[in-house]
Design a protein around this nucleic acid. Structure first.
Lengths: 235, 235
DNA sequence: TAGATTGTTAATCGATTAACAATC
DNA sequence: TAGATTGTTAATCGATTAACAATC
């Protein structure tokens, strides 16, 4: 039994599964608030917006935490998923770039709620340095390395202009940061072993536009032939 | 030839490919700015951060737009990808919820740059209604349906509190909106045919934390055994 | 023609899903 | 025991990748 658990741990959890664990966690927290003691894979799957076979498969990568015929203990599963995600410890986060987006992130409640603590806000603009946002003092980017080391920052959020992002990334990586959440619309070049996650608002919109266009096409019977490129060019 | 192009079009483009087209587009725009006339799949792949076989496979779903031995014409490929994504037309976007995040989105330059136009900002808070943000007047949420119809809004961005998101979604769907970009940390329930994309800051952080923990574990030789759940429970 | 590079094939890999034996 | 529900199997599906024939 221990053997199987350890194997699952060692083999690693599929990326697709990792990306869904936070969804399950959120759904479970909602259930805990409503004082539900146990939940079936079917109910939890509906709450998280996935199919129940996938949910059970995902959870099976963590271990056998359910009871056949009964379901999953809500609190226990919350604990196991939290632990797997590393949320039972406290992560110090620095937000670099305190423009509109940086401010929004600093004030975002969901950050603090689950193991994350905004430990620093940094900006290059003297106009912004010294502002108080979400109970924090905005510091000058010159102190970036010192702040990261002194406060044990392990995750950096980049909310800088595109032009500054790579340079800031290089600096934080140089002092040992290996986890970056990038909001700047650039492809960052980083050494192996550094994890980058990217949130790109304009890309999300473009993907929506693609599907929206498809729907419109379908209603009007496809794109007009005049819009097609001349055949010779396609050849 | 036309046959093959049409088939590719009709069969649909894989979701994974659609999600990468905006990356290629951004890389190509950078090259156009630097006045590059043609680009090889290898160079474009590097700029977009993918492998070149994947890039060629992705582009092959759109048609045969390259020249063997030469590469791709930058401007021509920009045009083809833009058209495929539906960016050659203008999309009116409404942002609902003008808190920190809504403001950040309204001011986000990348929105406007590529075929998207913020056509309305709406909020429920009388304190916020009437504010001028990014050249727009914040309107009261009561006028939501009228604004959407009158201005031809086809994409709605939800930046409301979690508690309000479903209700706003229901209202915009009722007046025909089928594309929603959701920043609120809730799973929305929507009818078939409505496309939801979700951006969740806290989930991105949790995924980073998972990997960060793994790295730390590796350095310390795995999680301490004391942290494991008692064996009987695992059984 | 020789060199370069695409577009496609086919192998591989990973994710999803339905179905059901195990078992509470 | 009968009913419920997990955890796992195996089939299927879709995405990735290396390799290379086609062809500029």
């Amino acid at each position: 039994m221990i053997r199987r658990l350890s194997q699952a741990r060692e083999r690693g959890i599929p990326e697709a599964t990792v990306a869904r664990l936070p969804l399950y966690l959120r759904a479970l927290n909602g259930m805990a608030e409503r004082s539900l003691a146990t939940v079936s894979s079917e109910d939890l799957a509906v709450a998280a917006g996935v199919n129940s076979a996938k949910l059970r498969k995902d959870l099976s990568h963590l271990g056998s935490y359910g009871t056949r015929g009964v379901g999953y203990d809500v609190e226990y599963l919350i604990y196991q998923i939290s632990r797997e995600l590393g949320l039972t410890q406290d992560w110090a986060v620095a937000i670099v770039g305190v423009g509109n987006l940086g401010r929004a992130l600093a004030n975002y409640g969901g950050f603090v709620s689950r193991g994350f603590r905004v430990a620093a806000l940094l900006d290059a603009d003297p106009e912004v340095v010294g502002d108080h946002i979400a109970g924090l003092n905005v510091e000058h980017i010159d102190g970036l390395e010192a702040v990261i080391k002194r406060r044990g920052v392990s995750i950096v959020v980049l909310a800088t202009p595109a032009a500054a992002a790579q340079q800031v990334a290089d600096r934080v990586i140089a002092v040992g940061v290996t986890s970056i959440l990038n909001f700047a619309p650039v492809v960052l070049t980083v050494p192996e072993g550094v994890d980058i996650r990217k949130v790109d608002l304009s890309i999300e919109l473009q993907i929506l536009a693609f599907h929206e266009q498809r729907k419109t096409d379908r209603m009007t019977g496809g794109p007009a032939m005049a819009e097609e490129w001349p055949e010779a060019v396609d050849l």
